[in-house]
Write a protein that binds this DNA or RNA. Sequence first.
DNA 1: CCTTCTAAAACGAATGCTCGTTCTTTTATT
DNA 2: AATAAAAGAACGAGCATTCGTTTTAGAAGG
Lengths: 205, 205
Amino acid sequence: MLCAVPRVSDEHLAARRQQILDAARRCFLRNGFHATSMQDVIAEAGLSVGAVYRYFGSKQELVTSIAESVLDGADQLFATLVAEEPPLPLVEALDRALEFAESQTGPDGVLPLAIQVWAESLRDPALAEFIGRMYARFRSRFVALARRAQQAGELPADADVEAVGAVLFGLIPGFALQRVLVAGPGPKTYLDGVRALLASKGVGK
Amino acid sequence: MLCAVPRVSDEHLAARRQQILDAARRCFLRNGFHATSMQDVIAEAGLSVGAVYRYFGSKQELVTSIAESVLDGADQLFATLVAEEPPLPLVEALDRALEFAESQTGPDGVLPLAIQVWAESLRDPALAEFIGRMYARFRSRFVALARRAQQAGELPADADVEAVGAVLFGLIPGFALQRVLVAGPGPKTYLDGVRALLASKGVGK
DNA sequence: CCTTCTAAAACGAATGCTCGTTCTTTTATT
DNA sequence: AATAAAAGAACGAGCATTCGTTTTAGAAGG
């Protein structure tokens, strides 16, 4: 009863897990969550049914893991935007965020996955809860950005930074969606649009 | 061999078609395109398999029809925004568009369907083409809005109205997504954010 | 107005697949 | 030798769709 533990290295386990996730991501990008069968993922990973089910108990678990990695990736970038010292001017921060979004457009960026995750969250309460928390965090980052811009005098002293943060954040999916669905204007043009609005004369009403 | 045409009235045919579409919409809202089976739609419509397949040749056709009705609905509102005389100030137009989006949030609005349509278009080239055309039209409406605002002196004379239109349009899905996924700020708050940005002092760089 | 007749409309059992998952067997590691 | 890891055959459920049959609306003929 002493030993004889045939476990494989933890690195190997982690690598296998990642191998499956990578395969799943490719499949999901190619065909969407629902039109991708477990067999597809399994074949793409070059493994067997049993091997994959050792690492992920269900297809849903695979979807959730992919969703998490997608959102984590975005959060990482947004976090650096706010942490920047000295504080980035709004336009500068937006520029960086838009360029990031742009880099994730196209068939091997993360954006098509994000769109699928949105759709999926409408039916999966657990995923919806996770996404809600994550996007609330995104927004709070942009709120922080707005607050610092206000302190720098870039925004009126009485501006509602929560509202401004929401709008700033909203600009990103607004841009990304157009880029993916309509092949809309590039990030530079979009930013010009924002600049023109910032330069507008006051406000009706 | 002279006739004997037992066809039913055209109104009846149209009503049946609509009956099926309504059922499908309810099912799709409840469970999403992919988790909804044809049996679900058929049962919801209170019809038989054969009856439904007489009106829609496939499930995909059903999805496409729903997508079309969703986009047509939005286009109708955007069209009226631009046609308004005298031209609406930007903030006013945005207010109306945001209120519309708000009204379509929630489980029987059209927005959850729109999100699913986005995801679906990533896999269905025909749907993607249709959506692309439709969203390009949406954007052109906002461009027209921007142009009229420019003529009214609300925007700088050298502003790129195409870019501004894209941004204005982008604000809508940006708002809607937050509203659906994060239960973000309401339309009034969001609009306050836009106003604060419009009131900001010039632009860095 | 009523009957007859016919093709459209509706029906629903049947079909053939593919799906996600389970479970027993084989292989590899210590 | 003992056990973790990987393999893959097998399974039942549920899917979209087809198709042969039944019902029904309404024109035609009286």
